[in-house]
């Protein structure tokens, strides 16, 4: 039907060796995507809405201990467990390789939340509220989700649309394969990252920085993990969800505390 469709597979590479756990991505995401302010009670009830969160864990035994951080957002799986369980087709994988949540179609069944192994889908248990002075800061390009629907990271698809519009405006015509590369699209978390731990791109594009990591992961699946030439690994790879977010981590042959040279 749509002949001028341009295929993409947007993906992200998260370099955990660079992540300092500063939470800039979390704040940027909250601001960009109209997420309500998570108060302490929301965390205590485990109902905080964070499209990207930093998971912290400790490596080693005291005194040789190091804090490690993993930013976790929607993995935009190519084989997403959340999609087939939605009774109203409110979530699907689109042309851009994004796992899309259609808010106005969602009925709040929460099957997707229960089926997501990464726990990156969130249910609005309450109507989102902001202090009155914050309401003028809401992003007009993003819907304010109401109570009773599921929401998740969109890879800031509103920025993609804005980028496409700017390309069209400059070209004075419709988007095509040639002028596609001119747009400047990156999600808010990538833009905010001070150490460039997050890299974003279209891994069908041969020039993108993330291409070698995706090629490596695609060429060496989990059963050939040792043969990977880069530091890449996928979260919960054994579930075969085929995520489009790759994590880079140097796996130390001598973990902290077991080897005095590493202390």
């Amino acid at each position: 039907m749509v002949t001028n469709r341009i295929d993409h597979t947007w993906g992200m590479v998260v370099d955990l060796d660079r992540c300092t756990g500063c939470q800039a991505c979390v704040v940027a995401c909250q601001a960009e995507n109209n997420l309500a302010i998570n108060e302490k009670s929301a965390f205590l009830e485990k109902r905080a809405l964070e499209w990207i969160r930093i998971e912290r864990y400790w490596e080693g035994e005291y005194p040789n201990v190091k804090a490690r951080f993993i930013p976790i957002m929607c993995q935009h799986c190519s084989n997403a467990p959340c999609e087939p369980v939605c009774p109203v087709f409110a979530t699907y994988r689109n042309d851009g390789g994004l796992n899309v949540q259609v808010y106005n179609r969602c009925i709040g069944a929460r099957y997707c939340i229960n089926n997501c192994p990464y726990q990156v889908r969130f249910f609005n248990f309450w109507h989102p509220t902001w202090p009155a002075s914050f309401e003028n800061y809401l992003n007009p390009d993003v819907t304010v989700r109401t109570r009773g629907i599921t929401e998740k990271c969109t890879f800031c698809v509103q920025r993609l649309r804005r980028g496409e519009l700017e390309v069209e405006r400059r070209a004075g015509g419709r988007l095509n394969d040639q002028n596609m590369a001119e747009r400047n699209y990156m999600p808010a978390c990538v833009q905010a990252c001070p150490t460039n731990a997050l890299t974003f791109g279209d891994h069908l594009d041969p020039d993108t920085k993330i291409r070698p990591y995706f090629d490596d992961v695609h060429a060496h699946d989990i059963h050939h993990e040792q043969e990977r030439t880069t530091r890449s690994y996928l979260l919960l790879e054994e579930l075969a969800t085929a995520p489009n977010v790759i994590y880079l981590k140097k796996v130390e042959p001598y973990p902290i505390g077991e080897n005095e040279h590493n202390g």
């Binding site: 469709r5 042309d95 819907t143 969109t154 698809v157």
Partner: peptide
């Protein structure tokens, strides 16, 4: 959109 070969992905129009 359909008759003019324009994309009909949900995220084109729904934000």
């Amino acid at each position: 959109h359909r008759q003019n070969n324009v994309a009909t992905d949900c995220t084109i129009c729904h934000k």
